[in-house]
């Protein structure tokens, strides 16, 4: 099976570490990678793509030196190869303007506020992951334990 990645980008290592720990429920199903800058996450996505694997979800912090979260997500949004990638903004400090831009230009799928709870994070990842595999038509049997059942059910019902 092709590998599925969840990428987290934040300039603060303690935030990345907390994210990694909180995402450990997915460890047996997905590969979780952390990056400390926007450039790094874009490079890593390139690499994953070259190896024939998938970036399923990118979780980005908004306030970072260099590229902001919205800038990173906009770059991803504008790359046709990554059109199915689910984009999550994770931030404690986004202005109204940032938020508008995130929705309009970066095609944001979800917004999580810092501090987050493990429960909400996991639910969001489940939902985004389910949408991604359905979008891409990836085999999801092995992933069933971590998929969002209502989203899956709804998709199957529509398909008939």
């Amino acid at each position: 099976m092709d590998k599925l990645y969840v990428l987290c980008v934040d300039d603060q290592p303690e935030v990345l570490n907390a994210l990694e720990n909180d995402l450990s429920d997915f460890e047996n199903y997905l590969l979780i990678e952390v990056c400390d800058s926007g450039n790094e996450v874009l490079e890593l996505m390139e690499q994953i793509d070259t190896e024939g694997d998938y970036t399923a979800i990118v979780i980005a912090d908004q306030v970072m030196p260099g590229m902001t979260g919205v800038e990173v997500l906009t770059r991803i949004e504008n790359d046709p190869r990554f059109s199915a990638v689910r984009k999550i903004l994770l931030t404690g400090l986004a202005t109204h303007q940032d938020t508008i831009q995130a929705i309009n230009s970066a095609g944001l799928d979800h917004y999580i506020q810092k501090p987050w709870t493990r429960e909400i994070l996991n639910k969001t990842i489940s939902k985004c992951l389910t949408e991604f595999v359905l979008d891409k038509g990836i085999e999801y049997e092995d992933l069933l334990p971590v998929l969002d059942q209502p989203v899956l059910y709804e998709a199957l019902r529509k398909k008939g």
Binding site: P13, L16, N17, E33, V34, C35, D36, E40, L44
Partner: peptide, 11 residues
């Protein structure tokens, strides 16, 4: 000591 390698170096 905390974190020793950056995310890139660690990979």
């Amino acid at each position: 000591d905390g974190l020793q390698l950056s995310s890139r170096e660690a990979r």
